[in-house]
Simulated scan of single mutants.
Amino acid sequence: MPKVSNKGTQMPESPIRKLVPYAETAKKKGNKVYHLNIGQPDIKTPEVALEAIKNNHISILEYSHSAGFESYRVKLAESYRKNGVDVATENIIVTTGGSEALLFALGSTLDAGDEIIIPEPFYANYNGFSVASGVTVVPVISTIDEGFALPPIADFEKLITPRTKAILICNPGNPTGYLYTQEEINQLAELVKKHDLFLIADEVYREFTYDGDKHYSVMNVLGIEQHAIMIDSVSKRYSMCGARIGCLVSKNKEVIATAMKFAQARLSPPTFEQIASEAALDTPQSYFDEVINEYRERRDTLVKALNEIEGVTVAYPKGAFYCIARLPVDNADNFAQWLLESYDNNGETVMVAPAAGFYSTPGVGLNEIRIAYVLKKEDLIRSVAILKDALAVYNKQ
């Protein structure tokens, strides 16, 4: 019998989605499942984006340009500049989601066997993208006790080898909700200049900051124009996860030219979704003001409730819509499965994402979970009440 590839065998399961079969079984039993496991917002997609699809009368659904519609890239660059990120149209390649942008970035900057340093915990698919690209992830650990702040630069520097080609960050962070300060971004900038590395920044949650803190884009740091690559997406900004439109942004012409070859190989990003994404750029500021205020209230509601559970530690998120909580259990994977398979509270339970899958260091984060606060406040309160009861029942076994 032929065997699958080693690369395929090494591809990690998604810690976010791997428990889906257990959730499906719980629902078949008649239980209601509160989904805290996945960053799928319940916020309505801007009407202007949906109307652009409804009112379109395309007679031939053609390929677009491999870099994406020029009209979209022009308008996207204008939007970036309006929001303080100084880039030009020629710095942008439209991709099929931020995921493809990351794959293009890795493929354009690292060869098989090269190393990329990533502060962990990190978005779980970074592991998968790296395996698919033949790239070795070298983690530098941030901790819940430090609020997942940027580890000391010395911790990065001691990991740099001749194989190191890039540093990858998510800002604000998924799964931590941590927002890097301007000082931390500048420290990374000095490091990549010193060692001639790329700095790849996943900035898809940039609008989601809450307490007057500002997001600092790597695209605005002077002196690293040839080092900086930004990853972006419409998924969370406009609650358009299903549109699968993102982009890769860099002022390094060689990076863009190289990424363009990957873009040509996959032909083009989807047409209708680009139409919706271009229209979404006309979303009024009032939409974002309401969304940010809603998420701020959800964060505060969730964190307050979690802090009232004995033995639970939660890192206070400054951005995005995730947090990491440390639970009084030995293994969060087992607990998360048990929640779905063997527990209910008046016919209801919760689904969480075990955080070990957001680390690449074995044995780290085993008693942590990621929670996405994408549910309305009443559901978050109920979810935490269920979690509190479940922990008490679980630890009495």
Results as ranks from 00 to 15, higher is better:
367 N>Y: 03
131 V>W: 01
73 R>N: 07
53 I>C: 04
136 T>R: 11
284 P>I: 05
92 I>D: 12
324 I>P: 05
7 K>E: 15
140 V>W: 09
263 A>V: 11
395 N>C: 07
364 V>A: 07
371 I>D: 13
46 P>Y: 03
265 A>H: 10
178 Y>A: 07
49 A>E: 05
226 Q>T: 06
330 D>R: 07
189 A>F: 03
111 D>H: 10
110 L>H: 00
24 E>Q: 15
217 S>E: 05
126 Y>T: 04
297 E>W: 06
156 F>S: 08
4 V>R: 14
97 G>K: 11
258 T>Q: 14
7 K>H: 06
91 N>T: 03
242 G>S: 11
60 I>Q: 13
230 M>P: 02
328 P>K: 06
214 K>E: 13
231 I>H: 05
148 F>A: 09
307 N>L: 15
288 F>E: 00
106 L>P: 05
136 T>L: 08
337 Q>D: 12
185 I>Y: 04
232 D>H: 03
150 L>Q: 04
162 P>S: 06
383 S>G: 12
151 P>T: 01
23 A>S: 15
40 Q>E: 02
270 P>V: 00
82 K>G: 02
122 F>W: 12
202 D>M: 07
39 G>R: 10
11 M>D: 05
148 F>I: 04
310 E>K: 14
58 I>V: 09
330 D>A: 03
266 R>T: 14
382 R>C: 03
373 Y>G: 14
24 E>L: 09
332 A>M: 06
95 T>C: 12
43 I>F: 03
103 L>D: 15
27 K>N: 01
94 V>K: 06
296 R>I: 00
95 T>Q: 13
338 W>I: 02
203 E>S: 13
297 E>H: 13
60 I>T: 10
163 R>M: 00
320 A>T: 04
201 A>C: 09
141 I>L: 13
25 T>P: 00
15 P>Q: 07
53 I>N: 11
178 Y>C: 14
23 A>H: 09
5 S>K: 12
121 P>M: 00
387 L>F: 01
41 P>T: 00
346 N>L: 08
342 S>V: 01
37 N>Y: 00
28 K>H: 11
301 T>S: 14
173 G>R: 05
29 K>N: 12
54 K>R: 15
42 D>A: 05
134 G>W: 11
340 L>Q: 08
321 F>T: 08
281 L>V: 01
254 E>K: 13
283 T>F: 10
233 S>L: 05
396 K>L: 10
67 A>Q: 12
206 R>D: 07
237 R>S: 02
198 F>R: 15
318 K>D: 11
167 I>F: 01
348 E>D: 11
237 R>H: 06
180 Y>F: 13
57 H>M: 04
237 R>V: 03
